[in-house]
Structure formats: structure tokens, C-alpha cells
Simulated scan of single mutants.
Amino acid sequence: MQTSGYAATKAGLDESLRRFNHDYFDLVIIHWPTGNDDETYRALEDAYQDGKVRAIGLSNFNASQVQAIIDGATVAPAIDQIETHLLWQQKRMHAYLTSRGMVHESYAPLGENQPGFLDQPVLQKVAARYHRTPAQVTLRFLNQEGIVVIPKTLDPQHMADNLAIFDFTLAPADVRLLESLDKRQAIVGWPATMQEDQY
């Protein structure tokens, strides 16, 4: 469902519930800022009040855009889903979201299959030390930072590996090594409004 504005969002949500034959969704988010976000969000608030959704939130909103929603909201957004990975750790947004009681959810935590993303020597070295894959160490790093991760894969073994990250903890020295990889570098095509100099 991709809609903008109150009426279209309300109708789209009802149609989606009908098509999926459900009474409610666990979470509905506004995928991109569109300029009509107040009205779109108001439709989500009404759906929340009516029991049609259990949580509402945002995606790809920077701090200023999130704050604009909060300032006009009667139901606070629960989450902001933003690109977050080793090369763009989103420290500034993480601090902001945490201060507002919002969940920081990582989109593209493993770099969307960008060549060389998991081959960085520092990451390889840390992974070898824990006898884990670079992907597992990356996901564990983000998890330890208090970030929810949603890695994308259709491979059953990768799914199992992605879930097997809760039985080890990265030492502070290794966390610092991984933090050193932060280049504030987005994957190609990310909206300019998410760049840290824009908020």
C-alpha cells in the first residue's frame, strides 16, 4: 500500500486489510516523506485508535521530519526504519530516536549485496576472532548498539545464520574497531534529506 493523504491512506489500509483477510496489522509505516505526511499520519493514528493497526511509524524520515510528525501527533511514532550499516552507522539519528523513545530499525544492515561490503579487512579480522561470519558480526554489532535489524535473504542457511547472533557479545575493543568503519556513506540512490548535514 503506497498512499499519500488522509482519505487515500484510510481507503488503502482498509483495502489491504480486506485483501489480506485480517482485522489488523502489527505495524504500518509511512515509507517516504511526501510533503503530505501530517494527513497521512493522521489516517494511521485513526487506524490505530480503531484497532486496525497495533503500532504506527515512519521510514526514511530524518530528525527534523520525525519531529514535525511528533509535534502534531496524538499517537507517537513507534519506529523509524532507516538505512543503517557499518558504513553508515547513523549515530546522530540513533541518539535522536532513542531520546524520543522510538525504535531505530536498520534497513539494509548487510549493505544490499554491495560488492566488497562484507570483505573489509577490519570486519574479517573481528569475525575470525569470534569464529563467526562477517554478516553475523555486523548484525551483532548493530544489535548491541540497540538497533533492530531486518536482513533480507531467501537463503534458508543465511536465515539461520542471521538468527544465530545472540550467543556471543562483541568486546568493547572490537566495537570500537567496527565503529571506525563508519563513513556516513549511503547506498547509491538514498534521499539527500537523510544526509546528516540536512538535519
Score class of each variant (00 low, 15 high):
residue 125 K to E: 15
residue 163 L to P: 02
residue 124 Q to W: 04
residue 194 M to C: 07
residue 103 V to Y: 11
residue 51 G to W: 03
residue 175 V to M: 15
residue 92 R to P: 03
residue 112 E to I: 10
residue 198 Q to P: 00
residue 83 E to P: 03
residue 191 P to E: 03
residue 186 A to W: 05
residue 28 V to A: 06
residue 190 W to C: 11
residue 104 H to S: 07
residue 55 A to C: 01
residue 90 Q to S: 12
residue 169 T to G: 04
residue 152 K to S: 03
residue 131 H to N: 14
residue 60 N to V: 05
residue 3 T to Y: 11
residue 169 T to V: 14
residue 136 Q to I: 03
residue 133 T to H: 03
residue 96 Y to T: 12
residue 135 A to D: 07
residue 43 A to D: 03
residue 29 I to N: 04
residue 100 R to I: 03
residue 172 P to M: 00
residue 157 Q to K: 15
residue 152 K to Q: 04
residue 100 R to W: 01
residue 67 Q to H: 11
residue 99 S to G: 08
residue 39 E to P: 06
residue 138 T to A: 08
residue 20 F to Q: 12
residue 50 D to P: 00
residue 194 M to Q: 12
residue 96 Y to V: 13
residue 188 V to Q: 13
residue 15 E to I: 01
residue 89 Q to I: 10
residue 170 L to S: 02
residue 115 P to E: 11
residue 40 T to N: 07
residue 157 Q to G: 03
residue 47 A to Q: 07
residue 59 S to Q: 11
residue 149 V to Q: 02
residue 151 P to W: 12
residue 144 Q to C: 08
residue 117 F to G: 04
residue 20 F to E: 08
residue 157 Q to W: 08
residue 144 Q to F: 12
residue 145 E to K: 15
residue 180 S to D: 07
residue 169 T to A: 15
residue 151 P to G: 08
residue 141 F to E: 07
residue 7 A to I: 13
residue 144 Q to W: 06
residue 161 D to S: 09
residue 199 Y to P: 02
residue 86 L to K: 08
residue 39 E to C: 11
residue 104 H to M: 08
residue 116 G to Q: 08
residue 24 Y to D: 01
residue 134 P to N: 08
residue 148 V to L: 13
residue 121 P to F: 03
residue 190 W to E: 14
residue 186 A to R: 14
residue 56 I to G: 08
residue 77 P to W: 07
residue 118 L to Y: 08
residue 155 D to P: 00
residue 55 A to T: 01
residue 197 D to H: 12
residue 64 S to N: 11
residue 122 V to L: 09
residue 26 D to Y: 01
residue 19 R to V: 11
residue 48 Y to S: 05
residue 142 L to C: 12
residue 197 D to E: 13
residue 60 N to P: 00
residue 119 D to G: 02
residue 90 Q to K: 12
residue 2 Q to E: 05
residue 1 M to A: 10
residue 138 T to M: 07
residue 182 D to L: 02
residue 173 A to L: 09
residue 11 A to K: 12
residue 128 A to R: 11
residue 127 A to Y: 09
residue 144 Q to D: 12
residue 24 Y to Q: 07
residue 52 K to Q: 09
residue 2 Q to R: 10
residue 186 A to L: 06
residue 78 A to N: 04
residue 165 I to N: 06
residue 187 I to D: 07
residue 47 A to R: 10
residue 171 A to Q: 15
residue 94 H to A: 04
residue 97 L to E: 01
residue 109 P to E: 08
residue 198 Q to S: 06
residue 66 V to G: 10
residue 178 L to V: 01
residue 9 T to N: 10
residue 41 Y to Q: 13
residue 98 T to V: 14
residue 155 D to T: 14
residue 108 A to Q: 11
residue 170 L to Q: 11
residue 123 L to R: 10
